[in-house]
Amino acid sequence: MAKIDISVKILRYLPGKDEKPRWQLFQFAIEDEATILDVLNEIHWQHDGTLSYRRSCRSSICGSCAMKVNGRNVLACETPIHRFGTKLKIEPLSGFSIIKDLVVDLEPFFAKLKRIKPYLIVDKPLPDKEFIQSTAELQAIGESTLCILCAACSAACPSSWPNQDYLGPAALLKAYRFVFDSRDDGSDERLEIINDKNGVWRCHTIFNCMEACPKKIKITDYLSRLKVKVVENSI
């Protein structure tokens, strides 16, 4: 464990004061095993208390700290600085309006999630105990349930950038998670919602979402399966 000198450029924005975002440079020494979150904490606690960012769990499960580092969407807490070297460029996720510094407005992101009815819909009578679900049935949705709603995928999606009305990969992945759940009875209504120019059809299989996903979920694959399901359903 040794200390190394790093230089960090951070995109700062204070509403009411800055007309538009500006870069600020910080230079200091930090342990070579540090993560991006350690770097931000060091700046916030020791150099400039006015820096704002979101963080919570430190163990890549809460999804708070997705941001752009040297052009890549990452979770700050799980990303060691040595992945990028000693020159860091940290900015907020693209495609969202900035509230302050690295904090973006996620209200539209969660509003979109709500639009696809992101909950199990059961019409049949409930069993006394659990629904029986085979391991194969579980596996169909298993990986998609790992989504932590960090918004890294939606922020990486070129179809989302120009068109804020698009549902985006995260909400669509959630639709997949329920449409393909063997216990769910609501797939018709859900498929009807996403069968829209601004729904699943604005996904052009660019694969950026998959590359950005910190949980390595094969989002594009699942969205393609969702498209097939929509077509099957409308025939």
């Binding site: 909950y119 199990l120 059961v122 409930l126 006394d128 105990k129 659990e130 629904f131 029986i132 679900q133 085979s134 391991t135 049935e137 579980l138 949705i141 298993g142 349930t145 329920f178 759940d181 216990r183 769910d184």
Partner: peptide, 19 residues
């Protein structure tokens, strides 16, 4: 636990499909 399962929690399963 059964309530959670009915809400859609993806519990890992036994070979016969139970929690």
């Amino acid at each position: 636990v059964y309530e959670f399962e009915h809400m859609g929690v993806p519990f890992s399963r036994t070979e016969d499909g139970r929690i």
